[in-house]
Amino acid sequence: MTFVLVVDDDPAIRRTLSINLRAREYDVETAGDGRSALQIVDERMPDIILLDLGLPDLDGVTVLKRLRSFSDVRVIVVSARTDSDDKVEALDVGADDYITKPFSLEELLARIRAATRRAGTQEPPLRVEVDGLILDISDSRAERDGQEAHLTPTEWKIIEHLVRRRGHLVRQTELLHAVWGPTYGRQTNYLRVHMASIRRKLEREPANPTLFITEPGMGYRFAPTVTSTA
Rank of each mutant, 00 (worst) to 15 (best):
F212Q: 01
K87F: 01
T16H: 12
L55F: 07
R14A: 01
T214A: 11
E25L: 04
I19A: 02
L175G: 10
P209G: 02
K87I: 12
I19T: 01
K201F: 09
I99K: 06
V130Y: 03
I76V: 15
T227E: 12
V179N: 10
R44S: 15
R186E: 13
T183C: 05
L109F: 15
V6W: 01
L38I: 05
D47Q: 09
E174D: 14
E215W: 00
R66Y: 12
E106G: 12
R221M: 14
K157S: 14
G60W: 07
S71T: 15
R117D: 02
A178E: 11
F70M: 15
E160V: 09
M218P: 00
I213C: 04
G34K: 04
G167E: 07
A207K: 03
G34A: 08
A23F: 01
L51R: 10
R117F: 04
S79E: 11
D83V: 06
I159H: 02
E143M: 09
E174M: 10
D96F: 02
T30V: 08
H150L: 06
R200H: 12
V6C: 04
Y220E: 05
E25C: 02
A114I: 03
S140P: 00
E203G: 09
A230Q: 13
G120R: 14
F70L: 10
R192I: 04
I112W: 01
L53Q: 13
T173K: 14
L133G: 11
P124C: 09
H177W: 13
D57F: 13
R144M: 08
G132M: 08
D42G: 11
L64H: 07
H150S: 13
V6A: 06
V226H: 01
V193F: 05
R200P: 00
A142G: 06
A149V: 13
E89Q: 10
H194V: 04
M218F: 12
R111A: 02
E25Y: 09
A230Y: 07
M45L: 09
K87V: 15
A31Y: 00
G54R: 15
M45N: 03
V78K: 01
R22H: 06
V179A: 08
P124F: 08
V193H: 12
K87Q: 11
D131N: 11
A31T: 06
R199L: 07
A31N: 03
R204A: 12
D42N: 15
R74N: 05
V4N: 01
L38A: 09
I13T: 07
L109H: 08
A114E: 02
A80V: 04
K101P: 00
I134P: 00
L191V: 10
V4W: 03
A110C: 03
L67Q: 10
R111D: 01
N208G: 12
S138Y: 05
T229D: 10
S18H: 04
I76A: 02
R199F: 12
P46F: 05
S18D: 08
G120K: 10
A31S: 15
A37V: 10
R24L: 08
H161R: 13
Q187V: 00
P224I: 01
R44P: 07
T82I: 05
